[in-house]
């Protein structure tokens, strides 16, 4: 169990305006932003090797689904949440039931999701 303070969060988001917003929110919450990664390759690299506690993933990365990144995080036991304009409908079969942050979201929504993720950290 961790707190949000100094929580290292990987952000994967391909739209500059959105990732800037998320960065601001995370900073306000006391988290440390890792990334943001706008491309799948970069995201995969960070997901498998970077020093991170949790991750926030945009479901669609320039037309490519994010799920390989989610799989890599699962492998490492890093808790993550999806951020999507599609809601839960945009998830693949393997990730149904995962935490989804519906876009647009408030800082309070992000805090709640992150607290949920932090609670999963041993």
């Amino acid at each position: 169990m961790k707190t949000l303070a100094a929580l290292k969060v990987l952000v994967v988001e391909d739209e500059a305006l959105v990732s800037m917003l998320v960065e601001d929110m995370l900073s306000d919450l006391g988290c440390i932003v890792v990334g943001p990664a706008a491309e799948l390759e970069e995201a995969l690299r960070l997901a498998s090797g970077a020093d991170i506690d949790a991750a926030l993933l945009d479901v669609n990365l320039g037309g490519r689904p994010i799920f390989p990144v989610a799989d890599a995080l699962k492998e490492r036991g890093v808790p993550f949440a999806f951020a999507s304009g599609y809601g839960e409908a945009g998830l693949s079969e393997g990730h149904k039931g995962a935490t989804v942050l519906q876009k647009p979201f408030r800082e309070a929504d992000l805090r709640k999701v992150l607290e949920g993720l932090a609670a999963q950290i041993a």
């Binding site: 305006l17 959105v18 917003l21 304009g85 599609y86 876009k103 647009p104």
Partner: peptide, 11 residues
């Protein structure tokens, strides 16, 4: 379209 609208709102 729904996705785009949501993304635009986030922008």
């Amino acid at each position: 379209l729904n996705h785009r609208v949501k993304n635009t709102l986030v922008s």
